[in-house]
């Protein structure tokens, strides 16, 4: 398992190469999150990512442990950047290795959905109108909720 919270950029190819050394691995699934130039109708010039040192690494480790408990995984890499970023920059990488693709695809999506609601990062955008903090989206909570067993999901009203 490789977890890193860092300023520096990462390379998907290098991370996949590092993970896929075990001959039991039949499937590697990955996701990259990038900075876009538009959010909520405004042009985004730059993004500052703040995080809670210590808790970010802890939260990511726990999320990966949960994924390993739910699916048959052989290895996992999660890298999340912080600091000053701009449109087209990479923000986050998730790579999952498993024997088969079902586990790899599902765990990859789960990790991203959980990371969005549990890893303490905050984004501040610079737009022509000034700086503003990005608002958390209900859709992220909903995406995380759908991974919960039915008994634990909030009751719809």
């Amino acid at each position: 398992m490789r977890i890193s919270v860092q300023r520096e950029d990462f390379d998907l190819g290098a991370e996949v190469k590092a993970i896929a050394r075990n001959p039991k691995i039949g499937a590697v699934a990955s996701f990259i999150g990038l900075v876009r130039d538009v959010n909520e109708g405004a042009q985004v010039g730059a993004l500052t990512l703040e995080h809670y040192p210590g808790m970010t690494e802890k939260a990511l480790r726990e999320i990966v442990e949960e994924a390993k408990a739910r699916w048959s995984l052989l290895d996992c890499t999660v890298i999340h950047r912080y600091g000053e970023l701009k449109p087209t920059d990479q923000i986050v990488l998730v790579v999952v290795a498993a024997g088969h693709r079902g586990d790899a695809f599902a765990a990859c999506e789960f990790l991203m959905d959980y990371l969005k609601t549990r890893a303490p990062f905050w984004k501040k955008e610079r737009t022509p109108e000034g700086e503003r903090w990005v608002e958390a989206r209900a859709i992220d909570d909903q995406a995380a909720e759908r991974w919960q067993p039915p008994a634990q999901r909030p009751v719809a009203r």
Binding site: G33, L49, H51, Y52, M55, T56, H80, I91, V92, M112, L115, K116, T117, R118, A119, P120, F121, W122, K123, W133, V134, E135, A136, D140
Partner: peptide, 10 residues
């Protein structure tokens, strides 16, 4: 302890 807004990482 820590106080913060809802998180927006990823």
């Amino acid at each position: 302890v820590a106080f913060f807004p809802p998180i927006t990482g990823g």
